[in-house]
Simulated scan of single mutants.
Amino acid sequence: MLDWIVKQPEKSILTLARSTAERPPQPGDAVNGPFIVSKLQVGPLVDAKGLNPIYSYMNESTSPGPGVFGPSHVFVVNRLGGNGNREAVHIEADSSVGQVGDQIVGGLAAGRIVAGSGTAYGWNPYARVDAIAGPGSQAIGQEVNVDVRRDVAAKVGVQIVDVTTSTGEGTSIDAALLFSRQTGARGFQTGIQFGYNGKDPQAAIDAGYGIRSGGTLINALPTTLSLQAGLDLSGVQKPFTDAAVKLAAGNTIRFGANGMGGSVSSRTSSEGGSILFDANSTILDFGGGQQNKFGPTGYTTTGSITEAAPATPARSSASCAVGQHAWDANYEYRCVATNHWKRAPLSDF
């Protein structure tokens, strides 16, 4: 059983007809459907804002069953030959007299729950590649193209806005961007990817990040919010087989404005050190199996301690804190009390 949209121009009526025929029903055919679902009117009907758009109304009360969507306005374009790109529906809003602040929207889709329960989807693209399709096919759920031919105040690929009237929250899931998969689906190899690897079949896509040189991959602007975490991976049930965060050698994690708050970096690509937080202790591994452990019982090392430069206290009463250590070619110095040094001579052996 197939659902088709039939337009009967003489009546300005769109009818949802059901047919088992291989072709859609034609105007004048007997309608094998339960009811007229839509009326199309252009002209004298004016809305509350004085506009005169095309109005199309539908009322329906069917029960399509689980996994099946009920009747709607259906546009089917079946390609039988030719080559090149195709569009099933083209919606465009052009403006040549727009003012600053005007919003020119090419298309707006809204799913609304006015009573009862359910899930409202504003827009639900569906890209499908059947099993018999060619091996070079692609499935892209949605592509957003930006064509800016002069400098503008804002250039954004995707903008997600929680509007003024949105005063509720998600008690189970509350996320601006959510990645998921249905039971049985294979899932994606990568959650978020910047750039192609040069193997993309679309020749128009460059093997680059899509972000110009000197730009930033992810940028969090200043905010007065008190956030719980910047990046939370605690929900991962199993350890990462490689690393939770991975950087190439020579890269740095910086803190503060312009990195003035300090940094953590690595210059080696092999046998690099690590910092391990163990139970009640911190272990510094400097590579090559040499570990240095700091814990409540003191400091333990598997290698030697090197104090690179000598430091000779000027006198026994020189400023110092208890436990401070110093040395020179002749003596070892230890601060035994506040501003009180003692020394022991060094000798060959």
Rank of each mutant, 00 (worst) to 15 (best):
E271K: 09
A220D: 12
L231W: 09
L80H: 02
N280L: 07
Q41N: 14
S234A: 08
K49R: 05
Y121L: 05
T306K: 09
P44F: 09
P27M: 00
V144M: 09
C335E: 07
T268P: 02
A311Q: 12
I192L: 15
F194G: 03
A109H: 10
G141R: 02
I173G: 03
H73R: 07
G82I: 06
G65I: 01
A311W: 14
T338Y: 03
G259P: 04
T312G: 00
F194A: 08
G70C: 06
Y196F: 06
T282N: 04
H340W: 11
F75E: 11
Q202H: 11
D278R: 13
T312C: 00
S117G: 06
I13V: 14
S319C: 09
G136L: 01
V97W: 12
Q103A: 14
G141H: 04
I104W: 00
N83G: 14
L14N: 04
D278V: 10
A175V: 00
M58H: 04
V76S: 12
I283G: 02
R315L: 07
V161H: 15
T301L: 10
Y126V: 13
I218H: 02
A21Q: 13
A248L: 07
F194N: 06
V245A: 06
K238M: 09
P201A: 02
S270T: 12
S117L: 03
S180I: 00
V68W: 09
A344M: 08
V161S: 14
D162F: 03
Y209D: 07
A204K: 04
G295R: 00
D242V: 13
G295V: 01
G70W: 08
K246R: 15
V31K: 01
T223R: 05
P239V: 03
V68K: 07
A244L: 10
C335F: 08
G191V: 08
T165G: 10
T119H: 08
A88Q: 12
S180W: 02
Q324M: 05
W341H: 08
S95Y: 01
S166F: 07
R86D: 10
I36W: 08
A243T: 14
Y126L: 12
L221A: 06
S166H: 05
A249S: 11
D232P: 07
K246D: 15
G65W: 03
R267P: 07
A139V: 02
F35C: 05
F349D: 11
R150P: 03
E92F: 13
G170C: 06
T282K: 05
S12V: 02
A326I: 01
W341E: 05
A329Y: 02
A175W: 07
G106P: 07
T216S: 11
S347E: 08
I54Y: 03
N145K: 08
G273R: 00
P27D: 00
P345N: 02
F75M: 11
S269M: 05
V37K: 15
V77H: 13
V6A: 03
A110Q: 09
T164I: 04
G323E: 07
R79I: 14
F277G: 05
A175L: 05
Y55A: 12
T302V: 06
V322D: 12
F188E: 11
P125V: 01
A314G: 09
G210S: 03
